[in-house]
Design a protein around this nucleic acid. Structure first.
Lengths: 254, 254
DNA sequence: ACAAAAGTGTTTGGAATACACCCATGC
DNA sequence: GCATGGGTGTATTCCAAACACTTTTGT
């Protein structure tokens, strides 16, 4: 069956690709798949594939991700379109790029495995992925851009918590912010920003409106088997976050 | 000549569309072109058109804008891709959206005129464009999204000044910020944020490092024929802005 | 006891807010 | 003179940075 599809004007092929960031508790990683066919056979690339006629770009990205990596129900955000003429040696291809986030448990889940094409999967440290010149296509630049896009939304939305399990330590949260923003934060101040000012500011004066703007709360449980004082586990309080966002002067970011 | 282009797999048609914001000194407008052919013949739409095989998306957007409106050398930023299955009645079309900015002088320039297709041009107030249900395709939503994207970059980059001539009044700058962010600012405080703290804060104490973070400077000229105290003209000091941006704690936004 | 990492407190200057006041123009 | 809108000053409040101190674990 040598079926062909003909049009009055030339059309580019359209693909979607996904940058999946996974946090393992220590650092941020990027999911890559080994290519089983040319071009770039044997090289690692972002999961993705060609748009089908009956699906939107978002649906295409979800479908390709499920087929190639087993990842289901992940929130994908579109962040760029790559359209250089020579970016694919086969034919003219423009690619719409998405990124998604996985928390430690989801990242280490058994359901993430290579798809039917029997290509292999690999998690690469974000830092290394951004400098890896052997990635297929322009996927290295895609990863760099995805990180930038993620860093921007970090200052407008509580996306960091999509990289964390239900409960997490402040240290983990801080690693995410520091990695993405390329900034080092003072531990004490970061704590106050996230949890809220515990006593000092609150007992000051009950005159003006107070903004104890903490968006994470203590769960009561602590980490086990640490070589030092055990870290508390916290959770993201989305209701509190929503309330704070309604205030026009609330800014959640750095 | 009934030339056709055939491929092994189905491909969508790809277009670019541009949301051109123009500031006339009083308010922000959006440039629309009247469609000369079906679908949506006679309706107003964003300037744009089909991607050609030998150009990138950016080049396509620039070319279509020049062809249809005469606008040349404008900085275009990609902000979304629309891919709903039914967004174009003819065939499957996905559209990559860009926005660009024009200052009063450029907006009123004679070189902006309808292109070869003899379709007419129209500037619509941004406020009206965002509520205009008779626009072609999904272009109303595109305008809304473009405004949101522009509002976001307003807090990271000095894009507001691309909507202003070389010299401008603080009032004009404030209108732009207020329109895009849907916030009303205190006149005096807005002034200080942009120009810098003139005396009060500076003469306070010469102990710590001072941050007289003004990014616009007085030009010496003033507005003529006003019914009140004439407003000064200011310019954006890009060098000062760059220096401030190098400081890690500098935030230019609201 | 010590090291290491988590958590808390305190001081301080800068910045945002709210608002009062002064200035320059046309009428 | 007055109205109008531009420009400046200032007190208050609040946040964020810097940094010292305390707590809890393992060795």
């Amino acid at each position: 069956m040598e079926e062909t599809f003909c049009y009055q004007y030339p059309r580019p092929a359209v693909t979607t690709d996904c940058v999946v960031f996974g946090f393992d508790g220590q650092e941020i990683n990027v999911l890559l798949v080994e290519r089983g066919s040319e071009p770039f056979k044997g090289k690692f690339a972002l999961p993705g594939g060609f748009l089908e006629p009956n699906e939107t770009l978002e649906e295409c990205a979800q479908r390709e991700l499920l087929e190639e990596t087993g990842i289901d129900s992940i929130n994908l955000r579109q962040f760029a379109v790559f359209s250089d003429l020579e970016r694919d040696p086969r034919t003219r291809v423009i690619s719409v790029m998405f990124y998604g986030l996985l928390a430690p448990k989801a990242m280490e889940s058994d359901s993430i495995k290579s798809g039917s094409d029997a290509v292999s999967l690999k998690w690469l440290k974000l830092e290394h992925a951004m400098n890896n010149t052997s990635l297929a296509f322009d996927h290295k630049e895609a990863i760099v851009k995805a990180k930038e896009a993620l860093a921007l939304s970090l200052n407008r939305e509580p996306v960091a918590f999509e990289l964390l399990d239900q409960t997490f330590t402040i240290k983990q949260l801080q690693i995410i912010y520091e990695t993405l923003l390329n900034i080092e934060f003072d531990r004490a101040n970061f704590h106050k920003k996230m949890v809220g000012h515990p006593s000092a500011t609150l007992k000051a004066k009950p005159t003006g409106r107070k903004k104890n703007s903490g968006v994470i709360t203590d769960t009561g449980t602590v980490m086990k088997n640490t070589k030092h004082k055990p870290a508390k586990f916290y959770t993201f309080d989305s209701e509190k976050y929503s309330k704070l966002m309604e205030q026009k002067d609330f800014y959640f970011g750095f």
